[in-house]
Nucleic acid binder design. Structure first.
Length: 316
RNA sequence: GGCUAGGUGGCAGAGUGGUCAUGCAGCGGCCUGCAAAGCCGCGUACAGCGGUUCGAUUCCGCUCCUAGCCU
């Protein structure tokens, strides 16, 4: 007998950096039977706490937080890894009779969750090094032409100056013998049978967002960001090319610690880079037609969101 | 008060008698395994007023402003 499956639900809380997602998530998880899943490509790294505004131990003891501190900064992490991890964690949460609250600002991860991600081979460091070497010799436009020869569709979509995507498309072709544009056509949403509620949290005024970002970075400096990055720098095995060290704030502090720029300049650049990150996050967010928007500057935003979720059947 | 050098888009900084500097910031967008990444697009700026010229940001004059030097 096919029993009617209990409806699985999930809440997506999305927003640009500094919009106050984490604090809000904590409030929601304390009121509703939710467990937090971080959707953040930087929070996965251990030892990167201040610059990522990572929830502290006390907070994490109060409410379960998943997918935080799961990688060493020398390791990589990808959208593919995230999807696998997130699906696993979500299954466990549902099995406990609870619901996942996916919180973060890594919009590609949200996108991959909702739209699905093709089953592609993982990154191959050796192959990438070979492609890079060849590109250094011939230039990326030439690599783009090589891609066009084997995968015209991908070449058409990828700009000739976009090394990252040209490299990935070539990599997948070399690894599988198939065009990435064909492989990408099959993908399955992680929310196929899930009742999803999408919340977008952001200061509606751009100036408010910019002020928050500047203030937040200054607080990070006061909280010891310099020492945190100095420690990572001193390990000796990390480089400016590691994805973890390319994160906003860390990249600029790294350059300062390496003696390339003054602290004021690093600070200036870090704040600007954060604004640019927030802008890209907002561009993704605007395309999320299901998302319900809330003003992060509204003093009562938490209650408004709580009410919205209750109406959607998320209260217990 | 005099002399000299300058006043170029939010900032920095080239340049020219008649399409276009450029960089940074900002704004918009793209996005399938590095995504807090990578990439694309967007600016009648030439201190003001006259003059010369077919045409002036560019040449001339005056005014204002700035910096340095002189009295």
């Amino acid at each position: 007998m096919p029993q009617s499956p209990t409806p699985r639900r999930a809440v997506l809380l999305m927003g640009p950096t500094g919009s106050g997602k984490s604090e809000l998530a904590l409030q929601l998880a304390q009121e509703l039977p939710l467990e937090i899943i971080s959707v953040d490509s930087a929070l996965v790294y251990r030892g990167m706490d201040i610059g990522t505004a990572k929830p502290d131990a006390a907070t994490r003891a109060r409410v379960p937080h998943h997918l935080i501190d799961i990688r060493d900064p020398a390791a990589g992490y990808s959208a593919g890894d995230f999807i696998l991890d997130a699906q696993q964690v979500m299954q466990n949460i549902w099995a406990r009779g609870r619901q996942p609250l996916l919180v973060g600002g890594t919009m590609l991860y949200f996108h991959a969750l909702s739209e699905g991600i093709a089953d592609l081979p993982a990154a191959d460091a050796e192959l990438r090094a070979r492609i890079d070497a060849r590109a250094a010799e011939l230039g990326w436009p030439a690599m783009h032409r090589e891609l066009a020869a084997v995968d015209p569709l991908a070449a058409q979509r990828i700009h000739a100056n976009d090394p990252q995507r040209i490299q990935r498309a070539l990599e997948v072709f070399h690894l599988t013998g198939k065009p990435i544009s064909i492989l990408q056509q099959s993908r399955v949403s992680a929310f196929a049978d899930v009742n999803v509620r999408e919340i977008a949290l952001a200061p509606l005024e751009r100036n408010d967002l910019h002020h928050r970002i500047e203030l937040r970075f200054k607080r990070m400096l006061e909280a010891g960001l310099h020492a945190e990055v100095t420690e990572l720098f001193a390990r000796g095995d990390l480089t400016a090319e590691h994805p973890s060290m390319r994160a906003v704030g860390y990249r600029q502090m790294w350059r300062h610690i390496a003696g390339e720029i003054a602290i004021d300049e690093a600070s200036r650049q870090a704040i600007a880079a954060t604004r640019q990150l927030a802008k890209r996050q907002l561009t993704w967010l605007r395309k999320r037609t299901q998302a319900r928007w809330f003003d992060a500057m509204h003093p009562d935003a938490a209650h408004m969101i709580m009410d919205a979720l209750s109406e959607g059947g998320f209260a217990k």
